Computed example of a mutant assay.
Amino acid sequence: MEKSNHTVTEFILLGFTQDPMMQLILFVLFLMVYSMTLVGNITLIVLIYADSHLHIPMYFSIGNLSFLDLWYSSVYTPKIMVTCVSEDKSISFDGCVAQFFFSAGLAYSECYLLAAMAYDRYIAISNPLLYAQAMSRWLCICLVSISYIGGFVNAIILTSNTFTLNFCGDNIVDDFFCDVPPLVKLACDVKDSYQEVLYFLLASNVITPTLLILASYIFFIIAAILRICSTQGRLKAFSTCSSHLISVTLYYGSILYIYCHPSFSYALEWDKIVSTFYTVVFPMLNPMIYSLKNKDVKEALKKLFKMTSS
Score class of each variant (00 low, 15 high):
271 D>T: 07
88 D>E: 09
32 M>W: 01
300 A>N: 11
196 E>S: 12
26 L>Y: 11
289 I>R: 09
285 L>T: 10
309 S>Y: 05
37 T>Y: 13
132 A>M: 07
154 N>E: 03
285 L>K: 11
296 D>S: 13
99 Q>C: 04
22 M>Q: 11
100 F>Q: 08
215 A>T: 11
288 M>K: 07
285 L>I: 07
223 A>S: 09
59 Y>P: 12
44 L>T: 09
81 M>P: 00
185 K>D: 06
224 A>F: 01
170 D>T: 02
178 C>L: 03
139 L>T: 10
72 Y>C: 10
170 D>G: 01
240 T>P: 00
217 Y>E: 11
93 F>S: 01
110 E>S: 10
22 M>G: 03
248 V>W: 06
118 A>H: 04
237 A>I: 13
113 L>Q: 04
79 K>P: 00
120 D>E: 12
102 F>G: 12
1 M>H: 14
186 L>I: 06
100 F>C: 04
101 F>K: 13
86 S>G: 10
198 L>E: 14
68 L>T: 04
228 I>V: 13
47 L>H: 08
277 F>K: 06
3 K>D: 05
125 I>F: 01
124 A>P: 14
122 Y>G: 01
140 C>R: 07
209 P>Q: 10
120 D>K: 02
256 L>R: 12
77 T>Q: 12
288 M>F: 15
249 T>I: 08
3 K>V: 06
199 Y>H: 12
192 D>R: 14
140 C>D: 09
157 I>A: 13
126 S>A: 15
15 G>A: 09
271 D>N: 09
279 T>S: 15
156 I>V: 15
200 F>M: 13
16 F>R: 05
172 I>P: 00
225 I>P: 02
279 T>M: 14
168 C>T: 02
27 F>W: 13
95 G>W: 11
300 A>T: 09
288 M>A: 12
109 S>Y: 08
144 V>K: 13
67 F>W: 07
257 Y>R: 09
283 P>K: 04
250 L>I: 04
